[in-house]
Simulated assay, not measured.
Amino acid sequence: MAHRVFRVASGVVTGFFHETAFYGSDDDFLALVVPFLEDGLRAGEAVVAACAERNTGLLRGALGRDITYLPGADQYSRPSESIATYRALFAEGTEGGARGMRVVGDVPHPGMGASWDWWARYEAAVNRAYAEFPVWGLCPYDTRTTPAEVLDDVVRTHPNIAAAPGRHEANPGFREGPARARQVADPLEQGPPLVDLVDVTARAARDAVSAAVAGTALSEDGVLDVVYAASEMVSNGLTHGVAPVRFRVWADSSRVVVAVTDQGPGPADPVVGLMPTTDTRTAGLGLWILHRTCDYVSMGRDADGFTVRASVAGQT
Results as ranks from 00 to 15, higher is better:
Met1Lys: 03
Arg4Asp: 00
Val34Lys: 08
Val34Pro: 08
Leu37Gly: 05
Gly44Pro: 06
Val48Trp: 04
Ala52Leu: 03
Tyr76Asn: 03
Pro79Cys: 10
Glu81Gln: 04
Ser82Thr: 11
Ser82Phe: 06
Arg87Ile: 07
Arg87Gly: 02
Glu95Asn: 14
Val103Asn: 10
Val107Gln: 05
Pro110Ser: 04
Pro110Gly: 04
Ala120Trp: 07
Glu123Trp: 09
Ala124Asp: 13
Asn127Asp: 15
Arg128Cys: 10
Ala129Pro: 10
Glu132His: 07
Phe133Glu: 05
Val135Met: 07
Val135Arg: 12
Trp136Glu: 05
Leu138Tyr: 13
Asp142Glu: 08
Ala148Lys: 09
Glu149Gly: 05
Asp152Cys: 05
Asp153Thr: 01
Pro172Gln: 02
Pro178Gln: 06
Arg182Ser: 03
Glu189Thr: 02
Asp196Gly: 04
Ala208Val: 11
Val213Ile: 10
Ser219Arg: 10
Val226Asn: 04
Ala229Phe: 12
Ser231Leu: 07
Met233His: 10
His240Phe: 06
Phe247Gln: 03
Asp252Val: 01
Asp252Lys: 00
Val256Phe: 14
Gly266Asp: 14
Pro276Gln: 11
Thr277Ile: 10
Thr278Ile: 09
Gly286Trp: 13
Gly305Trp: 13
Phe306Pro: 09
Phe306Glu: 07
Ser311Lys: 12
Val312Gly: 14
Ala313Met: 02
